[in-house]
Write a protein that binds this DNA or RNA. Structure first.
Lengths: 235, 235
DNA sequence: GAGTTAAGGTCAATGGTGTTGGCATAAGAC
DNA sequence: GTCTTATGCCAACACCATTGACCTTAACTC
């Protein structure tokens, strides 16, 4: 490795690029996030990011260990955004619903980063804070430790799993995504009723529902069962 | 588009490649699956797949519309493997549980492929067969069309979402996976009880549960709510 | 202020990728 | 045996991430 990445806080010399911009880790991450949002996942490349920053692509390697390191830095930013400004109400079911939708939404806002980071355990402060909060909500609601952990595990993994799943289409090129969505209309809606009676009978409902995320429904079903179990154990 | 993809069933001339192998859609997909398993998802490229088949990379475009088409074919193959040999019992909850675990398991058997295909809609026969079967189970159980579609959507997406999430660590290099697990132990298990009371209080339970998939628990919670809703609507 | 150091830019090159147009040849129809 | 054309191959294009060598100049020292 010819080039070493210097930690952001240790940087001293801020030398402007040829085109005059002064780089920083923050600026690069924000620019990358903007590019991904505006041009899709295919729109993010070292070359394009360099061009957007007015810098040579190789300059990025002074800040991150390859594109993978950059993506992880973006993911770290996502966790922070999911939790930023959230305050609990004290009603556990409402709090878990709101928190779940926040996490899901924050990841979906930047799909390609979601895909890469959803299944990683970062162990970083903000991830820990989220886990502590969720466990606190459940234990505060009256769940025993064993139930709290079981439900916590299903809850957090389901949130991240749906985030990654729903991010998948958004991370595709616009072309591939549209052809996927179109398939519900073009293929499923035209299946013969004699061989596919169940799909044929529900074709309209399927076409209306499938392009949207199932996360809210699945989340509600999980919370419903949890509440039922809490009531049963309390009775 | 200079080259047109010929449907598999319309192929007449089976001309061997320079190295003597006779290509087919089936052979290509199976080879791709094997490559992905052995070398990771990054190890799959048109050139390498061509080399493994003893064929020029461009030949693949006679069989699939680009690498994206090949990815869809791989996804179709996974679904097919999940369904192969499955027979319903007539008890809807048991059937949905068994089917879900089958799908989850089939994807996890090829983690890298799961990551590539979990969020794709292929519209191919075996995917359609799976959807028809699930809708049939729900409607046969007595769910109204609207409920059946709603639950079907949550059920299938939950299964695929957990498959992709759980595949994530398996798809990493052994090195990276171990470092993730180690970080979990070293970080979470040692958090101070005064600042992280909930994590500290449940550290042992967390350590026991987190390394395993939450899918069975989440699946059961979904089925539980579904059964409750069926009972309520019937009453 | 002058001198020194090295951070942090740039440039050029390497080897990878998907994809396509043109071409050749052999499989299968007659 | 002849013809057609499906299906293989080749060469090329435009992109990609990454790296080693080089150069400029900001910032520190005296």
């Amino acid at each position: 490795m010819a080039k070493d990445v210097v930690p952001e806080e240790a940087r001293r010399r801020r030398r402007p690029t040829r085109r005059g911009t002064v780089l920083s880790e923050k600026l690069i991450v924000e620019t990358a996030l903007r590019m991904v949002r505006e041009h899709g996942s295919a729109g993010l490349s070292a070359r394009r990011l360099g061009a957007a920053l007015g810098a040579d692509p190789s300059t990025l390697y002074r800040y991150f260990e390859g594109m993978d390191g950059l993506t992880l830095a973006i993911g770290e930013e996502l966790i922070g955004r999911a939790l930023a400004g959230w305050t609990p109400t004290g009603r556990w079911r409402d709090d878990l619903r709101a928190l779940g939708l926040r996490i899901h939404g924050a990841y979906l806002a930047h799909p390609q980063a979601a895909l890469l980071t959803a299944s990683r355990v970062t162990g970083r402060p903000r991830e820990i804070a989220a886990d502590e909060a969720i466990l606190g909500i459940l234990r505060g609601a009256g769940f025993g430790d064993e139930d709290a952990v079981r439900i916590y595990h299903a809850y957090i993994d389901q949130s991240l799993a749906f985030a990654a799943l729903d991010a998948g289409p958004l991370a595709l090129t616009a072309e591939a995504r549209e052809s996927d969505e179109e398939r519900w209309e073009s293929t499923y809606a035209r299946l013969p009723a004699d061989t596919y009676p169940n799909i044929a009978a529900t074709a309209g409902l399927l076409a209306a529902r499938m392009p949207h995320s199932a996360y809210p429904v699945a989340l509600e079903m999980l919370l419903e069962t949890a509440e039922r179990q809490l009531a049963d154990s309390g009775a």
